[in-house]
Amino acid sequence: MVILHIISGGEVGGSKKHLLTLVNNINSSDIKNIVVCFIKGKLYEEAVSLGIDIRLIKQNKRFDLKIVDDIKQLCEKEKVDIINCHGGRANFIGYFLKKKYDAKYVTTIHSDYKEDYKGNFYKTLIYSNINRLALKSFDYYITVSDNFKDMLIKRGFNKEKIFVVYNGIDFNRKYQKFEKESIIKKYNLPKAEHYITMVARLHPVKNHRFFLKACSMVYKEFNDVVFILVGDGELESELKEYASKLGIKNNVTFVGFKKPDEFIFISDFTVLTSFTESFPLSILESAFYKKTVISTMVGGIPKLIEDDKNGYLIKIGDEEKLYKKMLELLKNKKKAEELGQNLYDKASKNFSIENFTDNYKKIYKSIMYGG
């Protein structure tokens, strides 16, 4: 069975990690994976370093359809059986490829396509609607949470054609113990006894203003803390200005797009305040380091986080609860550690890389052979 994964290549977040983790770990004598991307970015470079079979077929513009014939030729040469698209740009190409090459077509739904361009009216009007139309042409769908499956069903997609695979990470990898002081020095972080990290691209859908507002409320009562924002994006200058307006600019640090491990390691806990999510890898990375998470009650997150058992769930906009739970964990180290251990125990059991790849194998075989 030969599977061709198509992705734009410009991704830097969860979908990139999802795909590379899948292709690098779905080891099977009867499955061959090939990745095609359109942009020579970080995804391409990381795939090459991992020894993944990735082919760069450059697309000059988003609507450049010349690459469809190039991908068709590759499919014919490699005798591709299943084409798995990842993301709106790949779905768009998949729509046209389906008219030229006979295979099973499946797309992995990493996000709510109606929210991908939140805050940008033009892109939402054009790209989100194009993606919606392209999605209708696929034979099957893989969502990364039950919540996203329900979303597709409500929007008229056939529930019999939708599979669910939750993200997983390697909980057996070597646990790297960092030195807190060296991390502070390495990234020139403000010195404090306590750190709280949020890992999310600086995009409207991640709702950073909600997080920063709660941070300002915490700071009024507990000022020996630094809030770390890991990620880059269009809102950086706006969010810096907002932090300044709230009077916490000296206690908020924007570190840009970085591997989050070191920041999670030095943190008391992590926070995620998104309007919408699938099943973010950032909460699994927090679980790996036995750090609990305070998160909005969205997407598949409640599948892992149980309120007051291994973390805290809050409603979007409930600044009071977010502030109170952040303050509680800052003041109660034992509670934070207990919740972090509980999160690790559940995540390592249910969201391992083995579960992740095994589920994909079953789906591919079901798509190919039925049953």
Rank of each mutant, 00 (worst) to 15 (best):
I3H: 05
I6T: 12
S8V: 06
G9L: 08
G10P: 05
G13W: 06
K17H: 03
N24W: 03
N33I: 09
N33V: 09
I34L: 15
G41V: 09
V48A: 03
I52W: 13
D53K: 13
I67Y: 05
E76Y: 06
K77H: 14
E78G: 10
I82F: 04
H86F: 13
R89T: 13
F92M: 14
I93Q: 08
F96K: 05
K100F: 09
D102F: 12
E115L: 13
D116Q: 08
K118A: 09
T124R: 14
A134Y: 09
F148V: 05
I153V: 15
E160W: 01
K161R: 15
Y166R: 13
D170Y: 07
K174R: 14
Q176P: 00
K180W: 07
E181T: 07
S182K: 15
L189D: 03
A192D: 05
I196F: 01
A200W: 01
R201N: 15
R201K: 13
L202A: 09
V205P: 04
K220T: 05
E221F: 02
V226S: 02
F227D: 01
D232W: 03
G233M: 08
L235H: 02
L235G: 04
S237K: 14
A243E: 06
K245E: 14
L246R: 04
L246W: 06
K249C: 02
V252A: 00
V255A: 03
V255Q: 03
G256F: 11
K259Y: 04
P260K: 00
F263Q: 00
I266W: 04
S267A: 08
S267R: 04
F269E: 06
L272G: 01
T273L: 08
S274P: 08
F275Q: 05
F279P: 03
I283Y: 03
G300C: 07
K303P: 00
D308I: 01
L313T: 09
G317N: 08
K324Q: 14
L330Y: 07
N332E: 12
G340M: 07
Q341R: 12
Y344L: 11
Y344I: 10
D345K: 10
F351K: 05
S352K: 08
E354H: 07
N355H: 12
K365E: 14
S366V: 07
Y369C: 06
